[in-house]
Simulated scan of single mutants.
Amino acid sequence: MPHDELRVLAHPLRMRLLSLLTGTAMSAAEAARELGDTQANTSYHLRRLHEAGLLEIAEELTIRGGRAKRYRHHPDSGRRLTRRHPGEEQLLTKAIAGELLRRASQRAPDRPASMTDAELWVAPEVWAGVLKQATALSEELHEAAQPPRTPGTVRVSASVALFELAETEARR
């Protein structure tokens, strides 16, 4: 089942759940309301994400005589997962690309934004510095994540994929 752990990210709802649960812990019912989905479907996907090690149980509550688990996403779990399954970053990349397309359709018009796409050659020390800055920026965003609709916050999209490319056969 090792490859199934990373394949869990292939479903678009699961990527949305990971983003949602970065800023707060939620039960299946709370997450379903926020995402406009059914509780049963959301619960299924939460269990799959938890089984893959991408969600942790933050607390268990008693609600109307039953037990509800509230899940939370720790952003570093994805790095641990891709390190365990080298070469399967393609699945994660495809899932992120799908999420980027979905979010881009919801971009607030006339609001500041930054978008870059490039395949470049740079000095190793420049690359190391940029990678360090991007990692710090990503960590800062994840640490600052708040529950949905928290007063004084804005909803943003952030997708960062920086990696060194392998030499092509023609260049070797």
Score class of each variant (00 low, 15 high):
R83C: 00
R83A: 12
R83N: 11
R84A: 14
H85F: 06
H85E: 03
G87Y: 00
G87V: 02
G87F: 02
E88G: 02
E88P: 00
E88I: 01
E89S: 01
E89Q: 07
E89D: 07
Q90F: 06
L91I: 12
L91F: 07
L92C: 01
L92H: 01
L92S: 02
K94P: 00
A95S: 10
I96L: 15
I96D: 00
I96W: 00
A97L: 09
A97G: 07
G98E: 09
E99N: 08
E99P: 00
E99A: 15
L100G: 05
L100F: 07
L100S: 11
L101M: 09
L101C: 03
R102W: 04
R102M: 02
R102K: 09
R103Y: 07
R103T: 08
A104F: 02
A104V: 03
S105E: 09
S105A: 12
S105R: 14
R107C: 04
R107G: 05
A108V: 11
A108K: 10
A108L: 09
P109L: 07
P109H: 02
P109R: 10
D110I: 06
R111C: 04
R111H: 12
R111E: 13
A113S: 12
A113N: 09
S114C: 08
S114Y: 11
M115C: 10
M115K: 06
M115D: 07
T116A: 14
T116K: 12
T116I: 12
A118M: 13
A118G: 13
E119A: 15
E119Q: 13
W121K: 06
W121P: 00
V122I: 14
V122Y: 01
A123S: 11
A123Q: 13
A123N: 09
P124N: 06
P124L: 04
P124F: 03
P124Y: 05
P124I: 06
E125A: 10
V126Y: 02
V126N: 04
W127E: 13
A128I: 06
G129Q: 14
G129E: 14
V130P: 03
V130W: 07
V130Q: 10
L131Y: 12
Q133P: 00
Q133K: 08
T135A: 14
T135K: 14
T135V: 10
A136N: 08
A136Q: 10
L137I: 05
L137C: 04
E139P: 01
E139K: 12
E139M: 02
E140N: 08
E140P: 00
E140R: 14
L141N: 01
L141H: 07
L141S: 01
A144S: 11
A144Y: 01
A144R: 13
A144L: 02
A144E: 06
A145D: 07
A145T: 02
Q146N: 07
Q146A: 12
